[in-house]
Write a protein that binds this DNA or RNA. Sequence first.
DNA 1: CCGCAACTGTATATAGCGTAAACGCACTTG
DNA 2: CAAGTGCGTTTACGCTATATACAGTTGCGG
Lengths: 248, 248
Amino acid sequence: MTRAAKPRENKDKKARDLPTGIALLWGEQDQPARGPKPSLTPQRIAQAAVTLADAEGLETVSMNKVATEFGVSAMALYRYVPGKTELVELMVEAVLAGPPDLSAAGSGWRARLSAWAHLQWEVYQAHPWLLAATAMRRQIMGPHQLAWMDAALAALEPTGLTAGQRHQVFLLVAGQVRSLAQQRADFDEDHNREWGRLTSELLNRHSDRFPALTKAIADGAFTSAELDPLDFGLDRILDGVQVLIDRA
Amino acid sequence: MTRAAKPRENKDKKARDLPTGIALLWGEQDQPARGPKPSLTPQRIAQAAVTLADAEGLETVSMNKVATEFGVSAMALYRYVPGKTELVELMVEAVLAGPPDLSAAGSGWRARLSAWAHLQWEVYQAHPWLLAATAMRRQIMGPHQLAWMDAALAALEPTGLTAGQRHQVFLLVAGQVRSLAQQRADFDEDHNREWGRLTSELLNRHSDRFPALTKAIADGAFTSAELDPLDFGLDRILDGVQVLIDRA
DNA sequence: CCGCAACTGTATATAGCGTAAACGCACTTG
DNA sequence: CAAGTGCGTTTACGCTATATACAGTTGCGG
């Protein structure tokens, strides 16, 4: 994300762009009458950007690359999308289509919330760039994103927790999935092996500075795959929530 | 983060840069003998970049801005730092200086781990860009980062959990702090108010699509400040860990 | 003490980015 | 059929990281 060319009146521009960005996300755009037919749609553009990001990462998605995908110039996209930030927002919405149906996961809050987390996890796995895309500055939430949020909150309704508590639990679970996806996204086989080799060598040389870490590595804390990270974290969190419920 | 100019031999270059980057982080650089005295150090450069990022955000930190801070040209920095990614790594290390001392927090694993989380939280609060800086592609960990990790793992040693479990718990807590800092970093007073206004209007129009969300907002789930997010999440997680310990 | 080698900083150049502005042209509606 | 609107292009600007070539400074070995 590079800076805008003319930063003057940036605030005004941002403020006025917000509604149009929202309208775009909610599909509340009225199509024009008196001109040539548009050859593209914001959705088609977003879809192309998504496949591009899936293949080569978010950082290689540029207006130019997306435009050439359609055989048009980069500036042509600006007829459909206000700017790149809005395009990324559309990408997120595109990927979150198909809001989750948790009714098949069982009736308990725990089963449903767990299912929600696993579904979210799968989305992150399928589109690793989603993390970086949602990690940027405060973006507006589209309907699909809200639908996911709604599903999680709905799962928490039978718990008897207060609204504030339910919201916090939602944030907790969502954050856990995110942070785990983060790790996974960082994980690159070759690079990681090389890093591990060099770091372990350094650790040997400085083992007195990091006793607990050295011991943990010696005990195989990093190499053992006995624990599924997602389920482990989720079980701890949901156990903790259960404690809270029982206490009330 | 823009692309490199000449992507050829990128792999070779990356592989060969990794050790030099590590050497930089660990301060294992031997100073030269036969030239003009260096006017800068990697650490001073990183420090300037940190204050810049603290003031105006990570995305405005450019080689040029940092260089002019010292009154030198941008290219001069490349005498001390291989590239921008390495500079960011140095920034992270600079900010994580002063590894935590948890012995004052009490003797129990829970008190110590909780103290660790709060300290980490404060670092994120003081340097909001730290999130984005560590969220990028797999970076190598410097000694300070490892020291933080070591402290958390040390706090978990008296729990009786397996090494793998302790590692997972560490990841869980660290992730929780991260994801919470994420939210906080996204939070911008003005922008958020505007967003809330527009979104709530949209929610009113589509309340049937998001029943649980609408209800949650009506119940004040988002406006009430009764719960401290960090403590709430931490209490749930640590309760869950306690359950695991008791079960063993 | 001198010259070479090593080292620093600069100037220049390249490839890429997002996007503002102006323009020709195709098309649809009056 | 003419009007005029909206599409797509071309051009240009300011910004990014960084490769390369060079000029200036310093200290060691002969």
